[in-house]
Design a protein around this nucleic acid. Structure first.
Lengths: 235, 235
DNA sequence: TAGATTGTTAATCGATTAACAATC
DNA sequence: TAGATTGTTAATCGATTAACAATC
C-alpha cells in the first residue's frame, strides 16, 4: 500500500459550504423548471438569471457534482436533478430522533419535505406527560428518559434539538454519550461537544442580526438618495 | 461639499457577515459569564477557548464594535455587552408583521427572545377563519386581506413569512407593494424581490445538507481509522 | 459556419490567521 | 519589571470572479 489514494477510496475533497448551500436551491429550481416543461436542457446562464446568481458561480457549483453538460445546449434537466440529488445524499435516507415537541418541534415533525431530503424522523421525545404516548404528524412521542437506550438500540446518528435553552447542553451530553454523532440544534443555546461530533446551530438571533443590519444599510442609503435628490432640485 | 465623507455621515464600512453572525454568540456568552460573576474583565483568549473560536478571530470581531479593551486585563464584561448590543441595534426595537400562523409561525410568535433582540411582532395574518380574531402568544391574528393596508398605515418595514411554499411569492409581492423593505422567509420557496428589498431565506434543506455532508465525512474518517487500527493489530 | 456554452485554468477579492509593537 | 493582552498591520487561505480554449 502506498500513500496515494486510489479511485474507490475517494479523495474526499472538501466541498465549500456556500456551494453546499446553493445546491439545494438549484435542485428545487430545476424541479420547478422540469414541471414547466420548457425543454430538456438548461444552461448556467439561464439558472443564474432566474436565481440572481452569477452564471460562473452556478457552473463552479455544478462542477463538484461531476454533472456533465453539452456545450451550446447546457445540462440535461432530468439528469441534473438526479446528479444533484445523489450528490446531496437525498436518495438514501438517514434516521433521526427529535427532542422537544413544542411548537417548533411539532412544525419540524410536519415537514414532509425532510423525507425527500433524506431525513427520516422516526421518534420524538419530551418530558411533558400530556405529550408522551401521543402521535404527532405520524411520529410517536416517548419520555425523554428512554432516549439514550433507544439511540443505542437503533444506532441513531442524528439528533434534532428543539428544546428551551436551559436543557440543551444536558440533552446534548446524553445523546452524545448514547452514540449520536450529529446534533441539529434549534435551541438558542450554543452547545459544546467532544471532538468528532458535529453540531449545526440554527441561530435565529444571528440571522435576525444579518437581516436588520442589511435593512438599516439600505434604509440609510435610500434616505441619502432622497436628500440628494432634494438638493439637486434646489440647484 | 466634497467627495469626502464627514464623520457624522458615517463611512458605513460593510461588516463581514460571518462577524455579524458571531457577535450574537459572544453577546449571549457574555451574559452567561456576567451571571456567573467570575470577575469584571474577560480576554479574547478566554472567550475563544470557551466558544472554540480562535482568539484572534474574537478580537477582529470585537474590533468592528469599537469596543475598547485594556492590555493585560481584557474587556470590561458589562461594557462589552452594552457595546455589542448597541452595535447590533438590539436597543431600539423594530416592528414587524408575521404571515402564516401555522406551527412554525406560532413558534416564532412565542419567542420572547425576539423582543430582546429588537424585533417586535405586532400583528399576525392568516387565511384560516378559525385563527382570525384569535390572539397567539399575545399577538392578534388578522385576515390576510388586511395585510397591505395595515403595512401602509403602520409603516411596517419587516415581514416574516411562515407560510407554505405555494403562497410565498404572491404574499411577498403584496408586502413589497405595500412598503415592506425586508422579508424574513421561512418558507421552502425562494422568493424574488425588486432591487432595494432585502430577503433573508432560512433554508432548512440547505442546513440539513451541510449537516449530513459533514456527518458523512466524519463517519467515513472514523471508519477508516478503525480499519487502519485493525490492520495495525494484524501486523 | 458562427455563436453560445461548457470545462478549466488564472486573477481577484475578502475573510481568516499570523506577526509584532504598544501598553497596562 | 515581566508577561499577558490589546491594537494594528501583514501574510495566508479559500471562495468568487474572470479569461479563454474546446466543443457542439
Amino acid at each position: 500500500m502506498t500513500n496515494m489514494e486510489d479511485k474507490n477510496d475517494l479523495p474526499t475533497k472538501p466541498i465549500p459550504e456556500p456551494t453546499l448551500r446553493r445546491l439545494p436551491v438549484y435542485y428545487q429550481y430545476l424541479k420547478k423548471i422540469k414541471d414547466e416543461k420548457k425543454g430538456d436542457f438548461i444552461s448556467c446562464t439561464q439558472i443564474g438569471n432566474d436565481l440572481s446568481i452569477l452564471p460562473i458561480q452556478v457552473r463552479k457549483d455544478l462542477e463538484v457534482t461531476e454533472a456533465v453538460g453539452k456545450p451550446k445546449l447546457g445540462y440535461g434537466i432530468e439528469e441534473l436533478i438526479t446528479v444533484i440529488g445523489d450528490f446531496l445524499g437525498w436518495n438514501n435516507t438517514k434516521d433521526a430522533y427529535l427532542v422537544g415537541v413544542g411548537h417548533l418541534g411539532t412544525a419540524l415533525l410536519g415537514f414532509e419535505r425532510f423525507r425527500e431530503h433524506g431525513l427520516n424522523i422516526i421518534a420524538a421525545f419530551d418530558i411533558d406527560a400530556e405529550k408522551i404516548g401521543q402521535t404527532v404528524h405520524g411520529v410517536r412521542v416517548f419520555h425523554i428518559k428512554k432516549l439514550p437506550d433507544m439511540v443505542k438500540r437503533m444506532g441513531i446518528k442524528i439528533g434534532i434539538l428543539t428544546t428551551p435553552a436551559y436543557s440543551a447542553q444536558d440533552l446534548t451530553d446524553n445523546m452524545v454519550k448514547a452514540g449520536i454523532k450529529a446534533i441539529w440544534n434549534f435551541s438558542p443555546e450554543k452547545v459544546n461537544v467532544p471532538p468528532g461530533i458535529i453540531v449545526q446551530h440554527e441561530n435565529l438571533a444571528a440571522s435576525l442580526v444579518v437581516l436588520s443590519k442589511k435593512l438599516a444599510l439600505t434604509l440609510k442609503a435610500q434616505l441619502k438618495d432622497e436628500v440628494n435628490d432634494g438638493n439637486n432640485e434646489k440647484i
